[in-house]
Amino acid sequence: MKSKNTHAEKNNKKSTSRRNFLKKGLLAGAGTVLGAGVVGSFDAFAEGGDSIKVLGPDGKILTVDKSHLKEIGARTEAQMQTEGRTGIPGRRWIKVIDLGKCRNARMCVAACQHAHQLKPEQYHVNVLRMDREGETAPFFMPKPCQHCDDPPCTKVCPVDATFKRQDGLVLIDNERCIGCRFCIAACPYSARIFNWTEPRDAEKYKDVEYDVELNVPQKKGTVSKCLFSADLLREEKMPYCVTACPNGVYWFGDENENAVTNGTTKETVNFKKLLKDNAAYVLLPELGTKPRVYYLPEKNRLFPYKYNGSTELKKEHNS
């Protein structure tokens, strides 16, 4: 200690200048922090300024002082990644597709492709033309990802890019995907697509922050799939395809609440009762994948089958 003191006394001039510099620096730093705080607090308490009307959560118009409003910035990519991986607690998303109502309007397909930056030939949900054996009637079947509870696709991913969340959704992270396409091979429902070329409007989406719950921007050389519009579910809205349907084909809801809501009519019904009353089924149950998408049989048709003027699928195949 002593030696240090003497040393300091000896180099008084030098050390004072250094100390002064440090002091000044500290003061300046504190000043900025304090100043910012004061400005911030002024900002928060400045009242009597402009008041504006906002739509409250319960649908009522509220008058709020402008200074009380805070702009919520866009979520960062890191935030979207962590939230996208964990999912929404307490929810188990479920979809019911009523085949008796589908008339191949393809509004779901269009809404989906628009939202997920897909080309017209890329499908997260596709409407297929179906026919069974013999004299059965053909029908249309929308086929999204089944969001299986025992998904074969996540089992084969070597880099943990595709994963299942606690709310039942199976998502894929395009930032992590290496494009090996094992998952495409593993999926028994052919629900996944591969970006062989640059995605639609690649230039336009170039600077957009990647959202794992939306798969936008899409990346060339990676796999993409139906996400049940996880970004909308976070805002408590129904998926793009569900609300776009004009014919009431889709029911969507939370299995934990035992309720599904129709995307067209907005009618809410008991989920288990709907399945029971209509003899619902799942696709390829024998594989044990436990799909989260249920189908109601194609009975009590709202519209007769018609495609390009033909009412029979078989004739079309034979010609």
Binding site: M238, A259, T261, T268, N270
Partner: peptide, 8 residues
Amino acid sequence: KRIFGNLP
């Protein structure tokens, strides 16, 4: 009240 609507 359910997430997307009211269940009777």
